[in-house]
Design a protein around this nucleic acid. Structure first.
Lengths: 134, 134
DNA sequence: CAGTATCCGGTCGGATACTG
DNA sequence: CAGTATCCGACCGGATACTG
């Protein structure tokens, strides 16, 4: 807050929010949170349920969520080892707005898809006014 | 839908949603949509208001939003040229869930920050049990 | 004013191999 | 089972220069 003269714009004020939105927006976080919304899960269980996520990314995603206080990680010192992941209260509270966002996305997927097709068609028409497709 | 035998998991079914969430999650889209929620804006006007966004990224962000049918782009063939950006009905409808998400992020930023500090402290303690800070 | 084009470093994220 | 470590290609995003 020391540059009254400058005008950094809203980007500055929004940094904390943008920061958190980045978490929400990354490829797997939302899916993991939604999955844990159904209850506690183990590592490879989630891996199977999600399908298509690499081991590495599941680890990193869970670490990020744990760091943000959204997920708890519980290790059972058995052999073979067992680790349970669950949402914290904070994580559960996040479930509400992201479900709303997910519902919006699902509800408008057709409109968005149509808009994309139309846009791409316009772009193609502009780039290649000739009726030949490449 | 061709592998009934396999088990791709939810990742497959969620692809359209993930896809849209990726838009929402990228660095500038949400900020731009929120800004346009206040009314029509011109290109450099937004650039100034946001502060910290490069010309390139503002263009790409707006193109993406336009492609998804969330914003309209209106060119006035004057000199110097003038281009107005505004939300579509679809864009305005998105404003609701992302405002909710933004409110959540803002409301819980302290809890998240605290969680991060605690996590990092634990990580440091684990990595360097010695009382020396690097 | 409102872009486009190009370069380039940093990060994301998958594949693979190894470990307790 | 639940990770960690490493490699590596793809893409994100800023800086800069140029254009109608």
């Amino acid at each position: 807050m020391r540059d009254h003269g400058g005008h950094a714009g809203v980007a500055d004020a929004c940094r904390p929010i943008t920061d958190i939105l980045t978490r929400v927006g990354d490829k797997w976080s939302v899916m993991v949170v939604m999955l844990l919304g159904n209850g506690t899960k183990r590592f490879n269980e989630m891996r199977r349920l999600i399908g298509g996520i690499s081991q590495r990314m599941l680890t990193l995603t869970l670490r990020g969520l744990e760091r943000d206080g959204l997920v708890t990680r519980t290790v059972f010192p058995t052999v073979p080892p067992r680790v349970d992941y669950a949402l914290t209260d904070l994580g559960r509270s996040l479930l509400i707005p992201i479900s709303a966002l997910g519902a919006w996305a699902y509800g408008h997927r057709d409109a968005i898809d149509a808009a994309r097709l139309a846009f791409d068609a316009r772009a193609d028409a502009g780039a290649a006014p000739d009726s030949q497709a490449s």
